[in-house]
Amino acid sequence: MGSVRTNRYSIVSSEEDGMKLATMAVANGFGNGKSKVHTRQQCRSRFVKKDGHCNVQFINVGEKGQRYLADIFTTCVDIRWRWMLVIFCLAFVLSWLFFGCVFWLIALLHGDLDTDYKDDDDKSKVSKACVSEVNSFTAAFLFSIETQTTIGYGFRCVTDECPIAVFMVVFQSIVGCIIDAFIIGAVMAKMAKPKKRNETLVFSHNAVIAMRDGKLCLMWRVGNLRKSHLVEAHVRAQLLKSRITSEGEYIPLDQIDINVGFDSGIDRIFLVSPITIVHEIDEDSPLYDLSKQDIDNADFEIVVILEGMVEATAMTTQCRSSYLANEILWGHRYEPVLFEEKHYYKVDYSRFHKTYEVPNTPLCSARDLAEKKYILSNANSFCYENEVALTSKEEEEDSENGVPESTSTDSPPGIDLHNQASVPLEPRPLRRESEIGSRR
Rank of each mutant, 00 (worst) to 15 (best):
E327I: 01
V158M: 07
L85C: 06
P429C: 10
N32W: 05
K190F: 08
D120M: 00
V37T: 12
T245V: 12
V278H: 04
N135L: 04
L109F: 03
C319P: 00
E133F: 03
R44I: 10
I258H: 00
R40K: 13
C130M: 03
N419S: 11
T150G: 14
A139P: 03
N206K: 04
Q41W: 05
T75I: 06
H234V: 09
V260S: 00
E146Y: 02
K346N: 03
Q148P: 05
K36R: 12
Q238G: 09
P163N: 03
W330H: 02
L376M: 05
D112C: 01
A379Y: 06
D254C: 09
V56L: 12
K372V: 07
T150I: 03
H110D: 02
E161W: 06
Y374V: 14
S399D: 09
K193C: 07
V166T: 03
L390F: 13
P359D: 14
S392Q: 13
I178Y: 11
G100N: 00
A421T: 08
V175Q: 06
F270I: 12
I295W: 07
A70W: 05
F73Y: 10
L338Y: 13
K241D: 07
S95R: 04
F270Q: 12
C319M: 07
C43E: 15
R367F: 00
R156A: 03
F137M: 03
S173T: 15
L376H: 15
E133R: 03
H234L: 03
N28W: 02
Y323K: 00
C54K: 15
N326Q: 08
I72A: 12
F339H: 15
S3D: 13
N419M: 14
E280N: 13
V26A: 15
V169W: 08
Q41P: 10
I178G: 03
T6I: 08
C76N: 12
E435N: 14
I258N: 00
E371C: 04
D368P: 02
W81Q: 03
R40A: 13
T138F: 05
G100M: 00
S228E: 06
C157Y: 13
I375L: 14
V272T: 09
F167S: 11
N60K: 08
R46Q: 01
M315D: 11
H229V: 14
M84T: 04
D263N: 10
E397D: 09
S406V: 10
F143M: 03
R431E: 15
K193H: 08
S422K: 07
I244A: 14
K36Y: 04
E249K: 15
L324Y: 09
Y349R: 14
E435M: 13
L97R: 00
S408C: 12
D213H: 14
D348N: 08
D180G: 14
Y384G: 04
V93D: 01
Y344E: 06
A186M: 09
R243F: 08
Q42K: 07
M19E: 08
K20F: 05
L142V: 05
K393R: 14
T150R: 06
F262D: 04
T407W: 09
A389M: 13
V304P: 02
E405K: 06
Q420P: 13
K64V: 13
E301T: 01
D416H: 09
D17F: 05
V102Y: 01
L108S: 14
F382W: 06
E249L: 10
V134F: 01
V56H: 10
K195C: 09
S422A: 13
S291P: 02
D180H: 14
M309L: 07
R156E: 03
S124M: 15
T150K: 07
R80H: 06
F270H: 08
V347S: 10
V4K: 08
S173V: 15
L417V: 13
S350F: 05
G62H: 12
V272S: 10
R197N: 13
L109T: 15
M19T: 12
A27S: 10
L306I: 09
G185S: 13
L338S: 04
S13Q: 10
N259L: 07
V202I: 06
R221S: 01
T74E: 14
K50F: 01
V93Y: 02
V310M: 11
A70K: 15
T23G: 08
V423E: 15
I244V: 12
P404D: 12
P429L: 12
S35F: 07
G308P: 07
V170E: 01
D410Q: 09
F141G: 03
Y250F: 10
R243Q: 13
A165M: 03
P336Q: 14
L85R: 03
Y153R: 07
S285F: 00
G402A: 12
I436W: 13
I415H: 10
L324K: 08
H279D: 00
R236G: 05
D296N: 08
D294L: 03
G154W: 02
Y349A: 11
A22V: 03
V347G: 03
E385F: 03
D121N: 11
I281E: 01
V61F: 07
S285T: 00
C364D: 02
V86A: 14
A389S: 05
R226M: 07
N326Y: 05
E133L: 03
P362S: 01
L253K: 10
R351Y: 13
D114R: 07
A312K: 07
I87F: 15
H110V: 00
A210D: 12
R212C: 07
Q420S: 10
Q172S: 02
T23P: 08
W220G: 03
V202A: 09
M24W: 04
M188S: 15
L201I: 12
V272R: 09
N419F: 08
R80L: 05
M24K: 11
K227I: 10
R156K: 08
L338P: 02
L287S: 01
V175S: 06
A379D: 13
V423I: 09
V166K: 04
D282E: 08
V166H: 02
L94K: 02
T316Q: 09
E146D: 02
D348Y: 00
Y356I: 15
